[in-house]
Amino acid sequence: MSNTEAHDTFLNSASADAPVFELRPDYRALLLVIEGLDAAPSNAASDELIHAAETHARSLLADQPVEELPHIAAWREAYRAFGAKPQRTRNSLEALTRRAAEGLPRVNALTDIYNAISVLHQVPVGGEDLALYAGPARLVRAVGDEAFEAFANGEAVVEHPNAGEVVWRDNAGVTCRRWNWRQGPRTALSDDTTTGFFIFDALEPMTDDALHAAGNALVAALTAINPAVSVSQRLVTAQ
């Protein structure tokens, strides 16, 4: 099986369970596998995107509070629906938009780019190392005994999601808690990552066209770093 066929198989095996769509029938996930990543340091191209994201965030927040931005407001409502308190556990888009207004950190070109795309297109984006996945990616409502590997005070710990919490998981346990709140270190991107798995989470009022535009922007930015990258993608919906 070629890498492209393997990536298509992985994407086709990804799923979101019916109870998630019962919670939010408008939910969609754009899933991308991108091969040929280069863990380059932050550079002029990634810095330009970060600067554009910071400028965009300041412009958005000049007119309204962050919690009233349309997609962020939708995610706050989704968090409340499964019992999370959005003022305490902010969805990744809200956390980044707040931070962008003050200045985003520079990590490396890959992380800088997908953080910037998230803010610019106002959509939660998660990036993980496909090679570290154990089986398919699944979005489920947790039972509560699933393992989530994390760090606390510099020490490795195993946490468990709350019953009913929406989580991404694979066969080994939870990869991201509270839909798009916190990704785990087990499948995290690193300098050794060559094939990334990216998740774009959308709720209304974000349209499918806007969702695909965000995915295309990520692909374009990563292709500018390495024109040889290959991309597989799939849109997961309630239908």
Rank of each mutant, 00 (worst) to 15 (best):
P105W: 15
R106A: 11
N108Q: 11
A109K: 02
A109C: 08
T111Y: 05
D112R: 09
D112V: 14
A116F: 13
S118K: 05
L120P: 13
L120F: 09
H121M: 09
P124W: 05
P124F: 06
V125N: 06
E128Y: 14
A131G: 01
Y133S: 05
A134H: 07
P136M: 07
R138D: 00
R138Y: 00
L139D: 03
L139I: 11
G144N: 10
D145H: 12
F151Q: 11
A152C: 06
N153V: 01
G154V: 08
A156S: 14
E159S: 11
E159N: 12
H160N: 15
A163H: 12
A163E: 10
V166H: 05
A172D: 15
V174E: 04
R178W: 00
N180F: 07
N180C: 15
P185K: 06
R186M: 07
R186N: 05
L189P: 04
L189R: 10
S190R: 04
D192N: 11
D192C: 03
T193S: 12
T195C: 12
T195V: 14
F197N: 01
D201F: 09
E204K: 03
P205D: 04
P205Q: 05
M206C: 07
D209W: 05
D209S: 10
A210W: 05
L211P: 06
H212M: 12
H212N: 11
A214Q: 04
A217F: 13
